[in-house]
Design a binder for these strands. Sequence first.
DNA 1: ATGAAAGCGCTAACAG
DNA 2: CTGTTAGCGCTTTCAT
Lengths: 356, 356
Amino acid sequence: MNSNQVNRLTGGTMKQKVTIRDVAKYAGVSPATVSYVINDVKKVSDETKDRVSQAIKDLNYQPDFTAISLSKKKSNMLGVMIPLVGDSLAPIFKENHYYSELISGIEYVSRKNGYDFLISGIGKPEDCKNWVMKRNLDGLIFLNSFPEHLYEEMKTLSTPLVLIDTYEGYEDFYSHIRIDDELGGYLAAKHLIELGHTSIGFIAPRMKGEIDQKRFRGFQRAMQEANLSINEELIFESKNGSFESGYCIGTKIAEINTEMTAIFATADILAMGIIKALNENGKQVPNDYSIVGFDDLMISRYASPSLTTIRQDVVNKGVVSAQMLIDAIELKETDPTAMTLPVELVVRESTARLSL
Amino acid sequence: MNSNQVNRLTGGTMKQKVTIRDVAKYAGVSPATVSYVINDVKKVSDETKDRVSQAIKDLNYQPDFTAISLSKKKSNMLGVMIPLVGDSLAPIFKENHYYSELISGIEYVSRKNGYDFLISGIGKPEDCKNWVMKRNLDGLIFLNSFPEHLYEEMKTLSTPLVLIDTYEGYEDFYSHIRIDDELGGYLAAKHLIELGHTSIGFIAPRMKGEIDQKRFRGFQRAMQEANLSINEELIFESKNGSFESGYCIGTKIAEINTEMTAIFATADILAMGIIKALNENGKQVPNDYSIVGFDDLMISRYASPSLTTIRQDVVNKGVVSAQMLIDAIELKETDPTAMTLPVELVVRESTARLSL
DNA sequence: ATGAAAGCGCTAACAG
DNA sequence: CTGTTAGCGCTTTCAT
């Protein structure tokens, strides 16, 4: 027997890889014909097609993606780029669920469409480009914002790109997916206002960044609609979007003792940190302060008090991005498309009517 | 010019891929020689080696992994298998940080060693095998437990495997990584006992599973050492490891009103659910009940009260697993190795000395 | 409708 | 030491 040989390591039989040639031989046709059948090239008679299909089944033939990739210049692989913090993905992955949920959405769509995807933290922009070339990646998803240089660099590649959460002005070149940040800010403020609050704080990690800017604009709009003025002193910029920096802000808030009764923090973890600090300083949520977060992480549901927040569907974001990318690859949709995903207010325990 | 051509889509120039032949021509040698230099085959004179290296730099030559893969039968890609829930990874990814932290560890080691990795949720075991063959994967990491059939199926492949968190009896065939579950159970119970508790509950989602069994055994050991007897009525099996099922158990506990003053739950989210239910029933943690969890998720740090728990270093688990796999691939270490990672007690706010 | 043959980019005997 | 050459498994003209 030629197609089987003893494998000394396992002691069992190790099947030699079934190639297109084996199938061809088995079906009594040429490799080309088998290839035609597999790729639905419609110049094969039904009769031979059936015979080949049967052979494929009988032999459990699995086309080798590597060979296909080499020959077609298409790997059926997507790349997912995530910014490194230091030299690792760990800090950013540990901080919240965001990435794993996104990935699960990407995984789902990829699998359904016969694609695989690679994940890589990227340091230098050239690395990214080289990576795409080395692996023959068919498309790329960028999570988060990267140094501008990278976007420039990628222009020389003809690989489709989908950007997630980027407000860097490359809308005209690449497809992108965002959420309705302005609406989120608006809904948060409106909810607080409806509960009777008039003195509302706004906490964000990057007031200059476009994302927080949009959320702030929504916040403003709601305040204006209610004829409420915004007190500049109630706007805080946290060091970053972490629990710790929320904790800092919370401590500060507990100390300054303004008439503020409500807070909108543009990230759930931030809100959690604030609550923690408030609690430790003898302030109650929602009795002393009503707090709204942003994102709706799982943790927000589990916390005590559970967090009122602006929810975005992160898994869906992954789904949409992957689908958009695959469409671009397969339909050769060269026009970048934009998509804004909805947000919604989720009311839980961290907000309450202002008690007079 | 042959090596440059106008790209109509971008309007820019699109560099033709630089191949080994281009480098060879540029350096005035044969492709084979270039290959030798790249692969450190030590039969090239230093002089030509330098010339080739220079050519590689000048041309920014990036070896095509696809071609290498086809020719060497080695893809430099690892596969990470995660069980599907329903038809998606989402439920399992949303539930906790575990997977993303693990992945960040895997990513780190992979990148450092020039590997990429693919993630896939797997349904049928054959799919897994086919996937490995189609993509020429060099090695596989299995997260969590899969149907037994799969482990059998994989034996016919000669691909190295690393199992994480599996207690299914395939230790002799595959490398695996675990944590010291018994010690974890012991430390949890001991801590509670030292705080003066004698009536301690044990909550686990899968009392029959080996993991919870080990944790229970550690729990028993600590109790015995303290000459405490275990009350069968204080052992609860939760429906699963979710917040919700913890909530159910917590509600039950609040109702039955035993003399129990402390609880060890074998998962943090479970513990969080219990606490939530207890709170809603007017019970205080840690005043009425001291609670210890297991895992030390980020959420446990942020919760109020923050959770005393048994910590395992999940990122490190990913690091170790990937390193183990790559070692197996490169050193052709055929012997399966086992590794047990340490756990440690992290004392926070959910436990307190028993107040008489 | 089918097949022969020339690659895709790299590796690895084998020759020299 | 260096080069020639024959693949790896599949696709894809171009004949037939």
